[in-house]
């Protein structure tokens, strides 16, 4: 069995239901995302179109994050899922440097790396990932790509020629496919990010990697401190006037 994912971008309407469902299901803290939906406007006004691209871990067959992890915190499950053991993670961020898709984040609550696991806990119980269940247009298709009769395999076969993966040149063999995607939607180098013209925010870089309230010394003192109460409010910077800055370094 090899579990795979397919998103039909022709169906996706950018409702972000999957993004929210993922956050709720996996208790992803504010400021972090396992799954995000990116809006891209293509063309020149008035001939423009808006495209929506859900982005999550690709669960690569040859995963660079698994290879670089020094303690096997990132590991393969038998069903092909690239899982992560946060109790073992040392927080070196090697996986964040290795993942060509930027799919891994440093959880600000646990200060460990985390990412989409295709809801491995739900899959284990015979359920579908939360993002699949919530999608109102069934743009997310999940299943066993080793099984020729599975929905995902049949979908791939029906759309042969239109099925793509992100960054195939990286030879990571992603198990996450897109139908209806193009260079402008799947290749970040084909997209411009123009500050001031974003719809809802102009933040392009996180100010912190990991827990923003924890300094370097705190990391050493952590085992000797009492449990600090963290909630989502802890991660909201209400005075945030962050703008694109290359000077700010994550987590240091």
């Amino acid at each position: 069995m090899k579990l795979g994912f397919l998103v039909d971008l022709n169906l996706c309407m950018g409702c972000k239901g999957c993004e929210v469902a993922c956050k709720v299901e996996n208790e992803v803290p504010l400021g972090s995302w396992r799954l995000r939906v990116k809006y891209i406007d293509i063309g020149t006004f008035p001939d423009t179109s808006r495209s929506f691209t859900p982005l999550r871990c690709n669960h690569c067959e040859s995963a660079p994050c698994e290879r670089i992890c020094p303690v096997s915190a990132l590991h393969y499950l038998e069903n092909g899922i690239v899982n992560i053991d946060s109790a073992r993670c040392i927080g070196c961020a090697g996986c964040m440097m290795a993942c060509p898709y930027g799919a891994i984040y440093m959880d600000p609550e646990t200060n460990t790396a985390d990412k989409c696991t295709y809801c491995a806990h739900r899959v284990e119980s015979g359920m579908m990932p939360a993002c699949v269940v919530i999608c109102p247009v069934q743009a997310n298709i999940f299943g066993d790509i080793d099984d020729d009769n599975s929905h995902i395999s049949r979908y791939i076969m029906e759309h042969q020629g239109a099925v793509q993966v992100r960054k195939p040149e990286k030879h990571t063999s992603p198990k996450h496919f897109y139908v209806g995607g193009g260079n402008q939607t799947l290749n970040p180098l084909a997209q411009q990010r123009i500050e001031g013209y974003s719809l809802f925010n102009n933040i392009t870089h996180l100010k912190h990697i990991g827990n923003p309230h924890e300094g370097v010394i705190d990391r050493f003192l952590e085992p000797f401190k009492g449990e600090e109460k963290l909630d989502n409010r802890s991660f909201i910077d209400f005075d945030n006037n962050a703008h694109e800055s290359y000077e700010e370094e994550g987590g240091h």
């Binding site: 995000r36 013209y197 870089h205 996180l206 290359y246 370094e249 994550g250 240091h252």
Partner: peptide, 22 residues
């Protein structure tokens, strides 16, 4: 902009420099 170019109009905040001066 050219008709074939694309602009990201909505995205989340992304990590900046992860491995820094240390």
């Amino acid at each position: 902009i050219n008709a074939t170019q694309a602009i990201v109009t909505l995205d989340v905040a992304l990590p900046g420099i992860i491995w820094g001066w240390m």
